[in-house]
Amino acid sequence: MLIKCPHCGTRPVEEFTFNGDASIQRPTSNDPATMDQWFDYVYLRDNPKGRFDEYAHHSSGCRAWLVVTRDTQTHEIFNVVTARDYAKKRVAS
């Protein structure tokens, strides 16, 4: 599989390490009442068939964290953005 790093260009998958679902967001509150949100954030993951936003670290390249949107069935990659831009967009929306 090839991933087009926004900084480095097209690189093979073995240069990347993965860290699961990027669509979930770290809760911001430390209020004990939000504990359920925290449990979900730390432990609960979907395993979708089809389109999936996934954290990928270009660990053998520029070391940027990316969000790769791919089809989990066909491995077709639709989009790659930096985790930074992904996070900013999430805050904006």
Partner: peptide, 14 residues
Amino acid sequence: VMSHMEFCHQAHWP
């Protein structure tokens, strides 16, 4: 630790 810092900064607190 380095990867963790990169993740926390870029994904949580850009």
